[in-house]
């Protein structure tokens, strides 16, 4: 990209910001409360999926464990901000400073993200030394461990019961701001030295090693940054919905976020964002069908569960028919008449 103007260089980010801004503006102008919530949910997913993309997209290693950091971030924030009456009684396992104190929202969000990041760095250290497929399975072990621990640690997490009454401060604009920051960070990472080394290793690990790329190290960097944003996604999720349980952050969430990434195209940042927009739209349409609607006097209603089956099938179709995803691994490039070769 030598010789490109600064605007041209950051265009992929600007274009995605613009896309999300237009969606939010339209929802603000024409939508009611329901549309607002759908868009907010989708923007939280953008944070998570772009976070996931930072690792999966750049390294080419599938991660089934990243959603753990969503849980870790969410619970960490809940411990700090939620339920001053409930905590001393029901969460007796918490350390006293958390049990008897409630902290401000913003510093809590920051410390929760930091907590998720530190854990990710520790967990990632052994796992990132493994080869691709074995690493994927090991990330699964991480998901299982976090699920078992949080699901059984009754005195700290209330086990599999829901934690309710979490302060809800995440509206559409907060979510948009966080999504914008995540997108910018993801782009900055993928253009950095580490990001480029990792992408080289994704294409050809042996060749990358031969030119001196320390693959486990670059993977660990990407994994840790990725977990930070997924942790942020968890914080936003908790303070958007207001209710969490550990099973929100298990296989279904893993599947949906991976589906978004794969459907959009896991090799580009644009793919991650487009995937969320496309799949969130599809989900909402299917939800409408599930609620039932009337066409020409005929009422149509699908039983619950059809939504998930359709999404699974759509994902399989994309994998077979368009393995690169909707964007085919391309970014939004500067609209210029002469086509420059993709890097």
């Amino acid at each position: 990209m030598a010789g490109a103007s600064p605007l041209e260089r950051i265009w992929p980010v600007i274009a995605l910001w613009a896309l999300l801004l237009v969606i939010v503006a339209l929802a603000e102008l024409f939508g009611g409360g329901i549309l607002n919530r759908v868009v907010t949910d989708a923007l939280v997913k953008v944070v998570v999926v772009v976070g996931l993309y930072i690792f999966v997209g750049n390294s080419g290693v599938m991660s089934f464990g990243s959603i753990s950091f969503m849980a870790i971030g969410a619970y960490a924030s809940v411990w700090q901000t939620c339920c001053p009456k409930l905590k001393p009684i029901n969460m007796s396992g918490l350390p006293d400073f958390l049990r008897y104190n409630t902290f401000d929202l913003f510093p809590s969000a920051v410390s929760s993200v930091v907590f998720a990041t530190i854990l990710a760095a520790i967990i990632g250290f052994p796992i990132m030394r493994l080869s691709g497929i074995a690493a994927s399975i090991a990330t699964f072990a991480v998901l299982a461990i976090v699920n078992v621990v949080y699901g059984n640690w009754d005195r700290v997490t209330l086990g599999t019961n829901s934690v309710v009454g979490i302060p809800r401060y995440v509206d559409m604009w907060v979510a948009l701001g966080c999504a914008a920051i995540t997108i910018a960070a993801a782009y900055a990472y993928q253009c950095s030295r580490s990001g480029r080394s990792l992408r080289a290793a994704r294409q050809d690990e042996v060749a990358a090693k031969a030119v001196g790329v320390n693959v486990p190290r670059e993977r660990l960097i990407a994994w840790t940054i990725s977990a930070a944003f997924i942790g942020l996604g968890g914080v936003l999720y908790a303070h958007n919905i207001g209710v969490i349980t550990i099973n929100n952050f298990y296989l279904d969430m893993t599947f949906i976020t991976l589906a978004m990434l794969v459907i959009g195209g896991m090799k580009s940042l644009a793919g991650a964002v487009i995937g969320v927009v496309a799949l969130a739209t599809l989900q909402e349409l299917l939800r409408q069908v599930e609620l039932g609607f009337v066409v020409g006097g005929l009422s149509i209603k699908s039983p619950p569960g059809v939504q998930e089956v359709v999404i699974g099938i759509v994902m399989l179709l994309i994998l077979v028919l368009r393995p690169g995803g909707l964007t085919g691994g391309r970014e939004f490039s500067w609209p210029s008449p002469k086509r420059r070769p993709r890097s």
């Binding site: 589906a259 794969v262 999404i311």
Partner: peptide
Amino acid sequence: VASFALAYA
């Protein structure tokens, strides 16, 4: 990923 999608469906 395909087998994950299949399993989900």
